[in-house]
Design a protein around this nucleic acid. Sequence first.
DNA 1: TAGATTGTTAATCGATTAACAATC
DNA 2: TAGATTGTTAATCGATTAACAATC
Lengths: 212, 212
Amino acid sequence: MEQNVEMSKATLRRLPSYLRYLYQLGRQNVPTVSSTTIANGLGLNPVQVRKDIALVSSVAGKPKTGYITKELIADLEAFLGYNNTRDAVLVGVGGLGRAILGYDGFRNYGLNIVAAFDVNDSVINTEVNGKPVYETGRLKGIVDRYNIRLGIITVPSSSAQSVADMMVDAGIKAIWCFAPVHLNLPADIAVKGEDLAASLALLSMQLEGHAD
Amino acid sequence: MEQNVEMSKATLRRLPSYLRYLYQLGRQNVPTVSSTTIANGLGLNPVQVRKDIALVSSVAGKPKTGYITKELIADLEAFLGYNNTRDAVLVGVGGLGRAILGYDGFRNYGLNIVAAFDVNDSVINTEVNGKPVYETGRLKGIVDRYNIRLGIITVPSSSAQSVADMMVDAGIKAIWCFAPVHLNLPADIAVKGEDLAASLALLSMQLEGHAD
DNA sequence: TAGATTGTTAATCGATTAACAATC
DNA sequence: TAGATTGTTAATCGATTAACAATC
């Protein structure tokens, strides 16, 4: 069942939005959906939607009717791994770290934060949203014990690189970094930076009338 | 001074990372920097860096030495608008909204959140990080009065569309949305969705060995 | 049947990278 | 001078869109 399709990043970015749109239709009990409907709903090109779906769907769509909503949802969930949760640790229990720990919605995306870490005595050995906060020194132990491969960084920029190094040393294989820095890490570690400054810049330019 | 360069979204996304890298060098008093140095530091192609810089820089780089760090910083800041702040409003004072209101770092990116709005009586007329929280009904009044064009949405998905409509009605021209939904809005409104589910999916796929 | 919709092949578009002359 | 580095033109690569036959 583990199909090894090649998948462009662009496609991968769109898949979650399809799933969201389908959930909406599912709630309204819409039995089938066409690529055109999805494309219109999300402001995309229908051919693009069909191509993307072809890469992840186990069954073919039917001419005239389209895709069966439920089946498509199931395929997307399976592909994106939303139905088998992935354990993660988070380092940096500040404002953003707290917000992420407190947001249970991530569970719907298959993310389960097992524990958080910080250097600040005032939060160590407390709980946030039912999740334990440990001192950073215990990171390796916990990661080892629960065989965790995903790490979330919500520390200030100045310590992001050292936290990332610590994570890699502990055995983490993928890092989701919310600090606005470029992390220098071994090539086999997957890194995704959430660059809010870049987003803001993009938006500002559109506002100014540059870009697009 | 308002050059009307065309600028691809890809370039626009990279510019903030250049600036961050240059700040780092600036702190170490490195007087000049070459495109190769920047490219190596950020894992990019040097030609790409040169092309990007050529679009925003007011002065040419010098063969053999590269660019003058300070000048390049000034040019990037000017282009990205980091030195003239842009006022914004935020709707949704939950976990994430609070984190954003509390994060003073955005000021460095030229963002100034003037006021926040919520429907919850327990937060209305309080302050978060020195910023007033008003009832949602007062949105239009404040936006009008301060001539605000940028709105930040941190409400739950279910009310994101209606908040966006309200913002547009109030005169907002650009929306930064943290709720995972596709907003249907007039074409002249700039929208940037911060899709954490998509980021997570991308990272998960890399972890699985699909993608790239 | 006729029309809507799929899946796929070919064409286009845009962005990245390679090649190279200019020059400090 | 020789070598590093710039800026730019041409080539490549990848992703989007157009065209169209197949089919329910």
